[in-house]
């Protein structure tokens, strides 16, 4: 039996600012993980990755990140993605300061 597919989101860094961005269901880049499109089907996720990777004038380093469904949208499953959606822990800089 094949392993269950871990849900994903498309993420990258924005070309100009370099900050973390996620792809939403309307094909827009969002700065909020909670607004990202939750990809629960592997084939669909791969298709979305191909599409997003072609947007090289907007995004850098596009990849699929593991997430889980939460009450307010996708939630990280790994601490690295948690830091990416938050910002550094030594200063109140980055995304946490922009909310």
């Amino acid at each position: 039996m094949s392993r269950a597919f871990t849900p994903k989101v498309i993420t990258a860094n924005a070309l100009i600012e370099g900050d973390v961005i996620y792809l939403d269901a309307r094909d827009n880049w969002t700065r909020e993980l909670s607004r990202a499109e939750l990809l629960t089907d592997e084939a669909h996720a791969q298709l979305r990755l191909v599409e997003a990777s072609q947007r090289h004038a907007e995004a850098v380093g596009v990849y699929l990140a593991d997430v889980k469904a939460g009450d307010t949208g996708p939630e990280p499953t790994h601490f690295r993605e948690d830091f990416r959606r938050t910002g550094p822990s030594n200063y109140f800089h980055g995304k946490q300061a922009e909310r």
Binding site: N13, E17, G18, D19, V20, H56, V60, G61, F83, R84, G87, P88, H93, G94, K95
Partner: peptide, 22 residues
Amino acid sequence: LTEDEFKPLRLMNGLYLQLHAY
């Protein structure tokens, strides 16, 4: 320029892309 083309050029000039920013 794509990122693949640009990356070696930016690295030669000290510019990295990190977790939250350049």
